[in-house]
Nucleic acid binder design. Structure first.
Length: 566
RNA sequence: UGGGGCGUCGUCAAGUGGUAAGACACAGGAUUUUGGUUCCUGGAUUCGGAGGUUCGAAUCCUCCCGCCCCAGCCA
């Protein structure tokens, strides 16, 4: 269950439940369910739904079931069931023993269908799929009734029974509800309830060769599970009259369907179709690629479940289409990571610095704070010596006005160490590239404070060269570029043209403070001034951790640079 | 041009007849041994538009405009 964050803001679903409770509807009970179809991986959009369903149930002392909507054996697989369960659990929710499957109810659903036939509310249609489509009419023109629509109850019963027994080929017959072929709501134009599918089901095996459609299964499953509030996304709104029609016709427990707007995120695609393209066409390494918005991807990237839950709570629940700025998600992770991450020094793009007045063979240990946000996390000792590495970006030979890091003649502070002044630069004769910076240090500033109280404008992180631990660090950036200004909020169908070619850069010569050689897979650190990093649980080997950048720190300097560049 | 929804700051989002919360982003400033964190400050005379009802409207009525969803034997 989600930890108690700040007071939840009101949202219309919460209000409905509150009113129901006050009116003692449902005997004050709240029963929800998260109903994924096991045909793909869960993503951040599903997280919103999970948080709403499990969150609301918990908030009102109710229960939330995990129910797999496995009515289509041609698309669903056991593999997905496992990943979905792992993701929901990781997010922090517990369905206890309430792990259900639509397929658990196939017998009951079949009985319901027979009942509808007996009541004259369903019939076996023998039109082809194409014919059914033609008969359905269009958005503006009414449909027409199938010639098979008025078969006798006995004939329908017999045909349906034989469908079940496997006497017919797929596509030859179908069970339909008898509603209204002229309804302006196409969902009510005699929807299909059962189709013949000679496919082995991941749970029921070969027991069935007819399978219920979503429309016929979903509401009845909700009913069987005594769901009170059946929360789904907006595209099912048009199905609600049908949802209600079945429950009414069957006279069984009738949950209330409530629809909300699905999540959209900037710089992100969340449709299964697009996500699968990214995977299959090799733009990413898999469903759990750290750049993917899947829960497995976010997990591998290093996001915390707390941050995601918080994000889902804070974006709210409403009925209007909206696109949340991905910066908001990042804000939520940073907030959590800032609190919990031990700080550490790591130089990603090393530049050698030689401190000329520091004794040749000397080395000393300096004390560093593990987390200024949490003194309880203690301190550690970091080695310092005559040769160190600093970030290439922290030195400029000819700095612009607002740059206040190291440059010739300028003094800066090495974090937890000494004040350092640049006295020279060594360049490669051929390329002109800076290969080494020569400096002097002020021995009286040990720890980072000057006895004469003089100030420096910058504090740099560093790593002692002879003590450095070299490791691979993977810098992840947005997979997609932002939508062009003119198309804001518009069509994203050509999303592949927005793919960011620099969404991943692998740095293999990063210099880290020695303690990091023992970093545990699955742990998180803040590399001071660089960002938050996660020890990849899959590619890390004992003594050889690989780091994934979860998110950068907020970077005011980068912003200034961007502005001055126009 | 059938039906169903939705339109409140750049982005989310409260508000349900009593005179526009909050968050992110953005812009200033303070503190700071992370250009991090934290902390102040600034911003919608206005709620898609136009009319109307009312002492009073984002909230009620009318018309208009825009966007989303629906023609799977997918979910």
């Amino acid at each position: 269950m989600a930890s108690e964050e700040s007071k939840p803001a009101s949202n219309f679903i919460r209000n409905i439940i509150q009113e129901d409770q006050e009116a003692a509807k449902w005997d004050g009970k709240v029963q929800t369910r998260f109903p994924p179809e096991p045909n793909g991986y869960l993503h951040i959009g599903h997280a919103k739904s999970i948080c709403i369903n499990f969150g609301l149930a918990a908030e009102f002392k109710g229960k939330c079931n995990l129910r797999f909507d496995d009515t289509n054996p041609t698309k669903e697989e056991q593999e997905y069931v496992q990943s979905i369960k792992a993701d929901v659990r990781w997010l922090g929710f517990d369905w206890e023993d309430r792990e259900y499957y639509a397929s658990d109810y196939f017998d009951t659903l079949y009985e319901y269908a027979v009942h509808l036939i007996q009541e004259g509310k369903a019939y076996v249609d023998s039109l082809s799929a194409e014919a059914i489509r033609e008969y359905r009419g269009t958005l503006t023109a009414p449909g027409k009734e199938s010639p098979y629509r008025n078969r006798s109850t006995d004939e329908n019963l017999d045909l349906f029974d034989r469908m079940r027994k496997g006497e017919f080929e797929p596509g030859t017959h179908v069970l339909r509800a008898k509603i209204d072929m002229a309804s302006p709501n196409l969902n009510l134009r005699d929807p299909v309830l059962y189709r013949i599918l000679f496919a082995e089901h991941h749970r029921t095996g070969k027991k069935w060769c007819i399978y219920p459609t979503y429309d016929f299964a979903h509401g009845q499953c909700d009913s069987i599970e005594k769901v009170t509030h059946s929360i789904c996304t907006l595209e099912f709104e048009d199905h609600r009259p049908l949802y209600d029609w079945f429950l009414e016709a069957l006279r069984i427990h009738h949950p209330q369907q409530i629809e909300f707007a699905r999540l959209n995120l900037t710089r992100t695609v969340l449709s299964k179709r697009k996500l699968i393209q990214l995977v299959e066409e090799g733009y990413v390494t898999g469903w759990d690629d750290p750049r993917m918005p899947t829960l497995s991807g976010l997990r591998r990237r290093g996001y915390t479940p707390e941050a995601i839950r918080n994000f889902c709570e804070r974006i709210g629940v409403a009925r209007r289409d909206s696109t949340v700025d991905v910066a908001f998600l990042e804000y939520c992770v940073r907030e959590d990571l800032n609190r919990i991450s031990p700080r550490v020094m790591a130089v990603l793009r090393p530049l050698k610095v030689v401190i000329e007045n520091y004794p040749e063979q000397q080395a000393e240990m300096l004390e560093a704070v593990n987390n200024p946000e949490d003194p309880g996390m203690g301190t550690r000792q970091v080695p310092f010596s005559r040769e160190i590495y600093i970030e290439r970006d922290d030195f400029m030979e000819d700095p612009p006005k607002k740059y206040f890091r190291l440059s010739p003649g300028r003094e800066v502070r090495l974090r937890y160490a000494y004040f350092l002044t640049c006295v020279g630069v060594l360049k490669d004769k051929q390329t002109g590239e800076i290969v080494e910076v020569r400096c002097t240090y002020d021995p009286t500033t040990r720890g980072g404070d000057a006895p004469d109280c003089r100030k420096v404008k910058a504090t740099l992180h560093w790593v002692s060269a002879p003590h450095a631990f070299e490791a691979e660090v993977r810098l992840y950036d947005y997979l997609l570029n932002d939508l062009p200004e003119s198309e804001e909020g518009r069509d994203v169908s050509d999303f592949k043209s927005r793919i960011n070619p620099a969404s991943l850069s692998v740095l293999s010569t990063c210099k880290l403070e020695p303690g990091l050689s023992e970093a545990k897979p699955g742990s998180r650190y803040q590399f001071e001034r660089m960002g938050y990093f996660f020890v990849d649980p899959i590619d890390s080997k004992p003594g050889k951790p690989v780091f994934n950048r979860i998110v950068t720190l907020r970077d005011t300097w980068a912003k200034i640079q961007k502005q001055s560049q126009g």
